[in-house]
Design a protein around this nucleic acid. Structure first.
Lengths: 190, 190
DNA sequence: AGGCCCATGTAATCTGTTACATGATTCC
DNA sequence: GGAATCATGTAACAGATTACATGGGCCT
């Protein structure tokens, strides 16, 4: 039931349409939650019926009309309650780690390819998050922004996303190095 | 459909019962996947029917009988195929990050409590993973074990789990420091 | 006496994914 | 002419969580 709260948290920065939310969940917001457009459209209608967000139709020319949503007072109260509840620990569920777990029983050449793909993906996100952080803090430096900026929530979650992807990249590179070295060892021993 | 592969990967280290698997998925294995006992019992039966694992009943005295499962040749082949497929990127879905995202609209005192709880949880896992890694590598040092040990898959995934929890702990502590400092600033300005 | 460990499941429900559907506008 | 963007959904299916069920042994 945390998707509803993720949507509310994402709408704190201003009105968004379902479409815009979906875009946000693909970049910045993906730091703390991930969801597909279909889920978001459904959840927005759900939240509206529950009175936690309010939608208003915006008529557009030359493109489809859209509905912009903002968090209501009840929505804010709901977030407050949510923040008070103890949270379930977040667990890793990652295809790539399953593959590395079986590294000793599976062809390592293909594994190395997967790891390099993931490292490249992680690096792309690192670059993106770096840009996002710079945009959020403007011309201040990080320390100053964290202590005196008005909206630090998104900055703090983006920092976690950045560290997470740096961890991914470093681990992938280390693992590639280990598996490559082991292959060399095996070849020379034959 | 990756739970099946996670179970296969977990069984590579030897025969396990559903109950033992569930324990493993709560500690070490939780580095690469997480699942509840109910899911595991169901998946084991499923895998057995598909011929990817073979179970044998072990009669016990003084406690219920159990069924031990091991990976079959077909199971190994399935893992090999899985390793070859490209994997979907793993996304973060974390209650705590949702809460921090709304930090500017929510009571930060309770948030700080949540962050401290999470930091303590992360530290406990760090300690556990440290022990696990030492047990896996025996009296060798890490570099030596990674290059010449026989089974490095579990070691490598445990390293990722360790780094992940260190990242959690460090970020939680940093975030607590920032939020605490901001509260001090707000008080003195009133 | 109460609670935890071993050991395995079923059933109902909730969440999330995949496939399908529509249709105008803008960019290459 | 074809692809991408804007904009919103429905329907079917797969995966995960929660609640419930059973029962002996061991520890305090």
């Amino acid at each position: 039931m945390a998707l509803r709260h993720a949507v509310l948290a994402a709408l704190l920065d201003g009105e968004l349409s379902g479409y815009q939310l979906a875009k946000a969940f693909d970049v910045g917001v993906a730091n703390f939650w991930y969801a597909q457009p279909q889920q978001l459209y459904a959840e927005l209608n759900h939240l509206e019926r529950a009175g936690l967000v309010a939608g208003r139709e915006v008529v557009q020319e030359g493109r489809p009309n859209k509905r912009l949503f903002q968090v209501t007072g009840a929505g804010l109260a709901e977030l407050e309650t949510f923040a008070g509840a103890s949270d379930k620990p977040s667990f890793i569920r990652d295809d790539l780690l399953v593959k590395v777990q079986s590294a000793d029983h599976v062809d390592t050449a293909t594994l190395i390819t997967r790891l390099q793909e993931r490292a490249a993906f992680a690096q792309a996100k690192i670059d993106l998050f770096g840009k996002l952080l710079r945009a959020l803090r403007g011309d201040r430096d990080e320390e100053d922004f964290l202590l005196h900026g008005e909206r630090v929530g998104p900055y703090l979650t983006c920092l976690r996303g950045l560290a997470y992807e740096e961890g991914n990249r470093d681990w992938c590179e280390r693992t590639v190095a280990v598996l490559t070295e082991r292959r060399r060892g095996q070849r020379s021993r034959r």
